[in-house]
Measured scan of single mutants.
Amino acid sequence: MDEEYDVIVLGTGLTECILSGIMSVNGKKVLHMDRNPYYGGESSSITPLEELYKRFQLLEGPPESMGRGRDWNVDLIPKFLMANGQLVKMLLYTEVTRYLDFKVVEGSFVYKGGKIYKVPSTETEALASNLMGMFEKRRFRKFLVFVANFDENDPKTFEGVDPQTTSMRDVYRKFDLGQDVIDFTGHALALYRTDDYLDQPCLETVNRIKLYSESLARYGKSPYLYPLYGLGELPQGFARLSAIYGGTYMLNKPVDDIIMENGKVVGVKSEGEVARCKQLICDPSYIPDRVRKAGQVIRIICILSHPIKNTNDANSCQIIIPQNQVNRKSDIYVCMISYAHNVAAQGKYIAIASTTVETTDPEKEVEPALELLEPIDQKFVAISDLYEPIDDGCESQVFCSCSYDATTHFETTCNDIKDIYKRMAGTAFDFENMKRKQNDVFGEAEQ
């Protein structure tokens, strides 16, 4: 370990593993360490099931009705991949897709007046949907046509809207959309967690709705994908990429100290040895004095023996409960997957309800979601602090990732990755940087 590296990475969460992969592909010498004996950090999948019970201090362990412990891979952080989103792009560019198998999530649902409705995925579904009345549908269709044709580089498509100054509230007004449709559009399509976006320039919202539609167009059922064997497969896929390009991995490796000289990182000390480096990437748990708390998320993992009611017996789905429907500031989400994804025993389902904490009784906040899941065989409640770095790391060369937020997709995580890359490399992130180099010394032969 007593060696000189360009970059040392602490923690094998998804953000850290993707950055480690990119740095290795770009010719950097990388050492990647984790104090845990497993990959994934906060974003790991726990197996066998006995391990999950232990982690949540349920000492009696799983009953026999849960089947074989080894058949379970339970995500600690519930997220899906947008089919046309940035993480899929990263997987394709790096060819990490060859280590993973994905399934399309069967449906996306939205909560309205105590019931759940399928988010329409085709024009026919939209016309048949009970989510809105006849005239509302016509106006909504006009709005969707506007979004589909919108091109930020072609003012002819703006229809009198200025993407940089017109607020989204004004765009909704222009198409005369009612409150329910606005809730549905902002939260189930643009996937905002709160209503803060309404008074911001509309460009980002329009682009988010386009991303949803384009992702949906790829597979038809929903815009989301999920990897077989759980999300823990993602960091491992990128760790393989890093290793192929010469990255060194050490799990179960305690970090005793991060060594600084004149305010700059110069190395990491572990078990009496020092590895030197020019730059350091880590998750917040490794540098508690360089991060601040930015809120909390509650996630309740529920094991069920039945599909969720009114989802047409889907073996995977997402449910969004827009905040307006339950008098909150932030949406509540449910991600459900099952034995069909090799993450649970035969006939079992895993539904994870999550939201940003707003009160001193977080469990009560998630109740509307839990009511949709009854009866629940077993619950595991996790309340996590969200951390963000206190500075950009440019001076110390210590670059810290943000905690995983309450969103049900990876777009915010990818933004964090691109942002850290830019601060480390001094140049904007470009997907081309992730391409495997042809015929290089570490390149794998085609399968």
Score class of each variant (00 low, 15 high):
S65V: 04
R292S: 04
M33L: 12
S45W: 09
H187P: 05
K89G: 02
S354I: 02
E365W: 06
M250A: 14
I298R: 01
K329L: 15
C335W: 00
S45F: 01
K174G: 13
E95D: 07
M434N: 11
L87I: 13
V74W: 10
G267N: 07
A148G: 08
K79Q: 04
N415K: 06
E233Q: 06
D195A: 09
D162E: 02
G267W: 00
T311I: 08
A340E: 00
G237S: 10
V7D: 01
A126E: 02
V381R: 00
V326C: 08
Q346H: 10
K435N: 07
T427K: 04
Q438E: 15
S401V: 07
A344E: 00
A128N: 08
G114C: 08
L189T: 12
D71K: 12
S108G: 09
F109S: 03
K264I: 12
V119R: 05
S305N: 11
V334L: 07
N153I: 01
L14M: 07
K269C: 14
V9M: 08
E233V: 01
V366K: 01
E50M: 05
L127M: 10
Y39H: 06
G160R: 11
V119D: 00
V266L: 10
L100R: 02
E4A: 01
T427H: 09
T412Q: 00
E261I: 12
N153S: 12
Y249D: 01
D391C: 14
I420T: 07
M23V: 07
T97A: 11
L198P: 03
N252V: 01
Q200P: 06
F140Y: 00
C414Y: 05
T185R: 00
S24R: 14
E214Q: 01
K142V: 05
I303G: 06
S222F: 04
T205H: 15
I320L: 06
F146M: 03
V441A: 11
M66L: 12
D71E: 07
K221G: 02
D196Y: 06
F143L: 07
T15F: 15
K422Q: 13
M260K: 10
L198R: 06
Y197F: 00
E363G: 10
K418E: 10
F143M: 10
D6V: 02
E214G: 09
I18C: 12
V265L: 08
E273Y: 14
P307I: 07
M134A: 05
E388F: 01
K210N: 03
E95W: 09
S45T: 14
P322Q: 12
T427M: 09
G69S: 07
R436V: 07
Y339C: 11
I383V: 12
L144P: 03
L280T: 00
S401Q: 09
G160M: 01
V96G: 08
D2V: 04
Y349E: 14
